[in-house]
Amino acid sequence: MTSLNSLHDALSPLLSPVHPSFPFAPIDVVGAMRLSSVINWIATGVFDPQPVGKGKKGTKKDRASIWQELAGLMIVVFGGETFLAMCTGSTPSWLVTPNIAVLFCAIHTLQTRTPLVHLLPTRPSLPLELLLSIPDAIGRTLLLTRFSILPLLRPSSTLPATSISLILVPFILAVPFASIAFSTFNFFSPQLKLTTPVELKSKGWMLVDTWCPLFISPLFLTLIGPVQGWDYGLGWKENEAVVFCMVVLWGCFTGRAIYNFGYRREQWLEMLGVGGQKKKTE
């Protein structure tokens, strides 16, 4: 447990605001840049199937307006929280303090509508995804534990802490509204169109981003429990459980990166810079 506490202490600078005049933690900035990059890939058609008969470049894809993309971005970031606030009669955080909303919108505008867009990776790759699996795991774990479960355990919570709410609330914050923005209404395409959510398509519930909330939340509760609404557990401290969940989720995201971009031998050779040499000798 000492090692977990030490790792949490080492991560503390990433989780704390940089300065009173810049009230954002580094992990917030990295998260905003990461989400903006993914949206940019989708908006520019990186994941679209190549048209039959076209070359590798094909034709340049039209993209949605900045306002439409920002609307989709806000749905991803605040949709779940706003839905829960409406259900409980409370005020969502973005109406109380719009700092995070301003940060995400400003970064997306700078990254995609200024010359800074040329500094963005044009498409995902194995080295990039392996590197970003670390901040992805940190940010997602905080959302699924410290920002969702722990508020339910406070006496001031407007929702009762039950076994259902303790699992359902993190899921609502992480999955449904991101699905609405990315696939159900295609907010990052020029024309909004209603389609079947990816999660409801064949093997959709195998997506890591979909099932990890249903896995990490019970794991975290079992580590810190017994608590209200969760009658069994190991009695770990909050910081220890959060870091352990980060490590587990980092393993999941690393596995996803390898499965998507690097499980073939030639992909690893290319990443290590020996792919070209191998081709010359053949």
Rank of each mutant, 00 (worst) to 15 (best):
residue 29 V to F: 07
residue 133 S to N: 11
residue 28 D to M: 06
residue 79 G to Q: 04
residue 210 T to R: 02
residue 276 G to R: 13
residue 107 I to N: 00
residue 141 T to Q: 01
residue 75 I to D: 02
residue 280 K to G: 06
residue 123 R to Q: 11
residue 10 A to K: 08
residue 181 A to G: 08
residue 21 S to V: 09
residue 155 P to N: 12
residue 36 S to Y: 02
residue 250 W to A: 10
residue 97 T to E: 15
residue 35 L to N: 04
residue 209 D to G: 15
residue 237 K to S: 11
residue 190 P to M: 10
residue 194 L to Y: 06
residue 279 K to T: 05
residue 191 Q to L: 12
residue 197 P to H: 09
residue 199 E to D: 06
residue 32 A to W: 01
residue 106 A to D: 07
residue 244 F to E: 04
residue 196 T to E: 11
residue 114 T to M: 02
residue 75 I to F: 06
residue 16 S to A: 14
residue 104 F to A: 09
residue 196 T to I: 10
residue 281 T to W: 02
residue 93 S to R: 09
residue 33 M to H: 05
residue 187 F to E: 06
residue 221 L to Q: 01
residue 171 F to D: 08
residue 118 H to W: 13
residue 79 G to F: 02
residue 30 V to I: 15
residue 221 L to M: 04
residue 151 P to T: 09
residue 210 T to P: 00
residue 95 L to P: 02
residue 110 L to N: 00
residue 202 S to W: 15
residue 154 R to L: 13
residue 270 E to Y: 02
residue 22 F to S: 13
residue 77 V to M: 07
residue 135 P to L: 06
residue 115 P to A: 11
residue 191 Q to F: 07
residue 93 S to C: 06
residue 13 P to N: 10
residue 116 L to A: 14
residue 35 L to A: 09
residue 40 N to F: 05
residue 196 T to Q: 14
residue 220 F to D: 01
residue 37 S to K: 05
residue 244 F to I: 11
residue 156 S to N: 08
residue 166 L to V: 05
residue 273 G to E: 09
residue 228 Q to V: 13
residue 75 I to H: 04
residue 226 P to M: 11
residue 199 E to G: 02
residue 224 I to W: 06
residue 179 S to T: 04
residue 136 D to A: 11
residue 70 L to Q: 12
residue 134 I to N: 01
residue 268 W to I: 12
residue 94 W to V: 12
residue 52 V to E: 12
residue 111 Q to I: 03
residue 30 V to F: 03
residue 169 V to N: 00
residue 82 T to Y: 04
residue 39 I to R: 06
residue 94 W to K: 06
residue 96 V to T: 13
residue 73 L to A: 09
residue 220 F to W: 05
residue 60 K to D: 09
residue 176 P to K: 12
residue 44 T to P: 00
residue 126 L to N: 11
residue 240 E to D: 13
residue 175 V to F: 08
residue 257 A to L: 03
residue 280 K to M: 10
residue 144 L to P: 01
residue 200 L to G: 03
residue 212 C to E: 05
residue 95 L to K: 09
residue 184 T to Y: 00
residue 22 F to L: 14
residue 15 L to Q: 04
residue 103 L to E: 05
residue 24 F to K: 05
residue 227 V to H: 00
residue 31 G to N: 14
residue 255 G to V: 09
residue 89 G to N: 07
residue 230 W to M: 08
residue 97 T to H: 14
residue 85 A to W: 02
residue 252 C to T: 11
residue 113 R to E: 15
residue 278 K to E: 06
residue 141 T to H: 00
residue 264 R to G: 03
residue 117 V to N: 02
residue 130 L to E: 04
residue 48 D to Q: 10
residue 216 I to V: 15
residue 227 V to N: 01
residue 217 S to N: 03
residue 190 P to H: 08
residue 259 Y to C: 04
residue 74 M to N: 11
residue 37 S to A: 15
residue 106 A to C: 10
residue 161 A to M: 10
residue 4 L to Y: 07
residue 212 C to F: 04
residue 205 W to F: 13
residue 138 I to L: 14
residue 175 V to A: 09
residue 31 G to L: 00
residue 106 A to V: 14
residue 107 I to Y: 00
residue 21 S to N: 14
residue 173 L to W: 01
residue 36 S to N: 03
residue 235 G to E: 05
residue 243 V to F: 01
residue 132 L to G: 00
residue 207 L to F: 05
residue 161 A to C: 06
residue 180 I to G: 00
residue 260 N to K: 13
residue 151 P to Q: 08
